[in-house]
Amino acid sequence: MQIEFKVNGKSCSLDICPTMRLIDLLRDELGLTGTKEGCGEGECGACTVIIDGEAVNSCLVLAPQVRGKEIITVEGLAGDGELDSLQQKFIEHSAVECGFCTPGMLMSAKALLMKNPHPSEEEIRQALAGNLCRCSGYSKIIEAVKDVASLS
C-alpha cells in the first residue's frame, strides 16, 4: 500500500508491505540503520524514534500507522554536520560504550527535552526507564542528559 509521511524533515511516499513494522521500514527500506533492534518486543528501547513529538518503540508500530506523521530518528539529530547538544554531552560524559542503546537513549531524552527543556533528575529517569543499557550502569547517561537540561 502507498503511504506518505515525513522522516527527519523529508517527505516520503512509499509503496510498502502493510504488515511491515516501522523499524523494518526505517532500516530496510530507507537505510536509516541508526535505529537498532534489540529485543523486538518493547522491552529494551533500542528502537525508540519520535513520532509527532512522542517517543515510541518502532518495533511495535505497524508501518501504515505512520501515514501523515512526522518521524525523527537518530539520524535527524545532527544538523549541518553539527552534533545535537545531547550527542555532544553523551560523548563528553563517556555515556557511550558499545553504543547499541545510544540511539534509543538519545531519542527518549530528545523527546523529553522537546516537551520539557529543564526536567528534574526524576523526570529524566522516568523518561529513560524504557531504555536498557548493558554497559554503562546508566549514571553517565543520566549525567549527560542533566547537563543538557541545565543549559539555558
Binding site: T19, R21, G40, E41, N57, C59, L60, L62, P64, Q65
Partner: peptide, 23 residues
C-alpha cells in the same frame, strides 16, 4: 489495531496473522 503494543508484537511472533486489519 490501536496503539499496536500488543497486536504488532503478536503478529511479529506469528501468534496472530489477521487477513484484515482496521487501524
Amino acid at each position: 489495531l490501536a496503539g499496536g503494543t500488543d497486536l504488532v508484537l503478536a503478529m511479529h511472533e506469528n501468534r496472530c496473522s489477521p487477513d484484515l486489519i482496521i487501524d
